[in-house]
């Protein structure tokens, strides 16, 4: 009898051989995320006179599988800012909790949460950059919408590498290819913000989502859209793309079985 407690209740070495530790990785690099798993596709956003509008569809894909069709990828931060998440959904959830705990902490001050969208964007970009520098990235590309310290509409992007940029209209993922040209045509960069109405901005985003639904195989026709103005956030999470027309599909030739 082996009297050492750690030996109790496990197969005897002399009968079954020593325990096989080989499944436990003891050497080699520490494994971190090297590719995303469940992902969201594009985020689109546009500034208008007195605010910012931002939208995403409600799909989370598992590779090419449309895995979850009611995923809300626009997350609010207090009543001041919206973050639109593209990329890994579990990393989005981690960041959402991180931001929620920050909002709670900020509210302990009698002045409440004083952080605006610009502050939030700076913070998020630093989180992304820190994690990429540790080779343990948060696999997201986000847009942050709200207001800056001067009370001007704010829209900016941050990605898994910590890269940041700002523009009157932005889109992540597939949207960078398909939505940005639409938005640039509707609202040229030189156009003063005063000339872009909230209605036009929202309509433009809906058009972008429709085009994305037509052409992005990882998208869905259910979407969320948020408008941030001085009055607060107006977030709609169960919208449906209206007025679809697949007539153009009839004219596409050369793909799949159809060759003539």
């Amino acid at each position: 009898m082996n009297h050492f407690p750690e030996a109790w209740g496990r197969p005897r070495n002399d009968v079954y051989g020593a325990y096989d530790h080989s499944y436990l990785q003891t050497t080699g690099p520490k494994a971190h995320t090297s590719s995303p798993a469940v992902t969201g596709t594009s985020v689109v956003g546009v500034k208008f006179n007195g605010g910012v509008a931002i939208a995403t569809d409600n799909l989370a894909s598992y590779g090419s599988l449309a895995r979850f069709s009611d995923v809300k990828r626009l997350r609010t931060f207090g009543d001041k800012a919206i973050v639109g998440f593209g990329g890994d959904v579990s990393d989005m959830q981690y960041l959402d909790r991180l931001l929620a705990s920050m909002d709670i902490n900020e509210n302990y001050s009698p002045r409440g949460n004083m952080l605006n969208a610009k502050n939030l964007h700076t913070y998020l970009a630093k989180v992304f950059y820190k994690r990429r520098s540790e080779f343990n990235p948060l696999w997201n590309h986000v847009l942050v919408a709200g207001f800056d310290g001067e009370g001007e509409p704010f829209l900016s992007s941050a990605d898994l590498l910590g890269t940041t940029f700002s523009a009157p209209h932005l889109a992540t993922g597939f949207g960078a290819h398909l939505a940005v040209p639409i938005l640039r045509r509707k609202f040229p960069e030189g156009m003063p913000l005063e000339e872009i109405s909230q209605e036009d901005a929202v309509q433009a985003l809906k058009d972008c989502l429709k085009v994305l639904f037509y052409r992005d195989a990882r998208s869905i026709d259910k979407y969320s859209i948020a408008v941030v103005t001085k009055d607060g956030i107006d977030l709609k999470e169960d919208e449906q793309i209206q007025g679809q027309s697949w007539a153009f599909a009839e004219r596409i030739k050369g793909y799949g079985a159809q060759t003539v």
């Binding site: 990828r73 959904v89 959402d96």
Partner: peptide
Amino acid sequence: WDSEAELPVDGQVGT
């Protein structure tokens, strides 16, 4: 006040 509504889990994304 403990919420009487059904609360989402923190970070919950779907319904």
